[in-house]
Write a protein that binds this DNA or RNA. Structure first.
Lengths: 341, 341
DNA sequence: TTGATCTATGTAAATCGATACATAGAAATC
DNA sequence: GATTTCTATGTATCGATTTACATAGATCAA
């Protein structure tokens, strides 16, 4: 590795000059074109790369942005990270990926890192953990620039969320347009905003098309919690009621899979007897049996928007909108079809 | 942020002393117990954390290990990373997660980073990319300590691979023990070592139980490449032959899903008519319809072993075995059952 | 012509914070 | 008083950046 001194020597100038040229600084001191070129040539020849430790020590900048991911094994998380990295890598910053692994200890370790000025900003992927909320509040109080992805934040904390309302609206609308009139709903845990918003979106689609909302067709008790098992149990209950319906809007893809299993066990077919629409568009949903019609969760896009927002904040730009909403879209596959007569 | 000077002042000693105490150095210079305690107390009170930039500048160490991941969105990759991080985080090093995104440009960027002494070692997750091979060779030539995970490496390059042979052996054995005698195989692309090893493992299980190998029951042309489509087409061909079989060993879970789809379309049932065993144990395989019996790919364990190996290398320990083999295990779910009569 | 004043272009030296090496001073021992 | 033995410190250093100053030549008023 060559140093700035070596470059200076080779170019026949002082280290100061090299620094000025390579950083394109010019504010109070003009450097002649010929000197500039000599320096650049020398740097090229020596394959000079500044020592980041020395630079950061002096400038008190780290040129890095942390991505606080709750669990990189989670596909939501991974895709969001992808989006964030795409944007950051085009800037002068680089990313420091911090995988919290849904683990309080790890979170605290990273917290120290953040307070130690080792990063200039943070993109936080929201979780439902209470811890998460506290940490975000603390970081914000310490005036560390941050953007939260995936959760509506109180006050002035910038965030990027997803259009649950529009998403579930178009899920229900899709079924209605296929001729379904009796549509059941499997709701998620009611303590989550997402659940409530998705329910609202579905209802408003029914309203728009003049279809009465039938409480009998809603499975909302989430006694079994969240996951495929919840979808399975919910669908079993719905089927037991012997109240006819030809389609179901599931809270998410995972619960949709559970529901499909319950439907199959009952000897019914998807989509011939019952159409199923999920929400999230997990990678596996394209390969499930049958491939799942679902609402695409724009994770990557949210990552991108979050990163851009943070870069603007770091750049000192004034932000008009501190809450961004990323758009979803419907992905039609094989689990939905025309309503049976 | 407080500096070493402030700590020194508060403790009434020199910065040198503080450095010595906090780093637990003692080689040529004993520090009295009382001084030691005063320093530690002062550091605690000031919440002192060494400036890593200053430290690294001076020591010429980065205390970081890169994880070169070809694609964090890929579950293999994500789980392996998890394993690596678990081990590294217990050491004095921290990880720098480099997501290559299967992209040559990114790879080159990171390559620069590595040559710039910014990391002390690398855990490389192998891909099938030719680029990958070149990069690894170059890094090794530059004497950057590295360990490759997921691919047998030539020469002295340390690596961790998975037991394909034992895995596919136990997949076939599982079926045989369920009473299956006519077992078909869907092979992966023959240019991959994994494919060939898995084939070999399956054959040796047949041999052990005295079951003749029937070439008619093997789908090996991979004209449709890799993925669920390949599994689907392969199974269609096998079924067309009208040669009876009651079970199939798929190259991996993805091809197993394709095979299951072909079986369903034919009006047959899994596992009643045909048992299916996959390989990899993808996260989705537990939720597929039916849940898939498969061989668990020990990604996390491989990550752990790789990281430990690298740490040993960095610690200057002499390594006896430079090739580690991580063990697989059978996961029995619903896609396999007793052979139909 | 002269020396004063600008311009344009560079550079010397201090600095960031921690560590490494050689050395210093005090107490204890003989 | 000389010599060990303990214990701690002074100072240079890592490599880049920054600030205040330096120099050479041009310009210009007297």
């Amino acid at each position: 590795m060559s140093t700035i001194k070596q470059v200076a020597q080779r170019a026949g100038v002082s280290p100061s000059t090299v620094s000025i040229v390579l950083n394109n600084r010019s504010t109070p001191l003009p450097i002649s074109q010929s000197t500039r070129e000599r320096v650049l040539k020398a740097a090229r020849e020596l394959k000079y790369n500044p020592n980041i430790f020395a630079r950061s020590l002096r400038t008190k900048r780290s040129y890095s942005i942390a991505i606080l991911a709750f669990d990189i094994v989670d596909p939501y998380c991974a895709h969001t990270i992808r989006g964030v990295e795409e944007v950051i890598s085009e800037s002068e910053f680089h990313t420091l990926l911090c995988d919290v692994q849904n683990n309080e200890e790890k979170m605290k370790d990273y917290f120290k890192l953040f307070k130690g000025n080792r990063v200039e900003g943070i993109v936080v992927m929201a979780t439902t953990l209470e811890l998460n909320r506290r940490i975000i509040a603390q970081l914000h109080e310490e005036h560390i620039p941050l953007v939260v992805i995936g959760k509506e934040m109180p006050g002035p904390i910038p965030c990027v969320v997803m259009g649950n309302l529009e998403g579930s609206f178009s899920a229900a609308e899709h079924l209605i347009k296929l001729g379904h009139q009796r549509i059941s709903f499997i709701l998620g845990p009611s303590q989550y905003v997402d659940s409530r918003q998705r329910e609202k979106g579905g209802r408003s689609a029914l309203r728009k098309y003049g279809i009465p909302f039938d409480g009998e067709l809603v499975a909302e008790e989430n006694t079994v919690g969240w996951g495929p098992e919840a979808g399975y149990q919910s669908m079993k209950k719905l089927l037991k009621k012997r109240k006819k319906f030809t389609a179901v809007v599931a809270f998410d893809d995972i619960s949709a899979f559970g529901a499909i299993r319950a439907i199959s066990e009952k000897g019914l077919k998807v989509p011939d007897d019952i159409s199923v629409v999920g929400f999230d568009d997990l990678p596996m949903s394209a390969f499930s049996n049958p491939p799942l019609t679902t609402i695409h969760y724009p994770m990557r896009e949210m990552g991108r928007q979050g990163a851009s927002l943070l870069l603007k904040l770091l750049g000192g730009q004034t932000i008009k909108k501190r809450k961004l909403i990323a758009e979803t879209h419907l992905v039609v596959r094989k689990s939905s079809g025309p309503a049976a007569m």
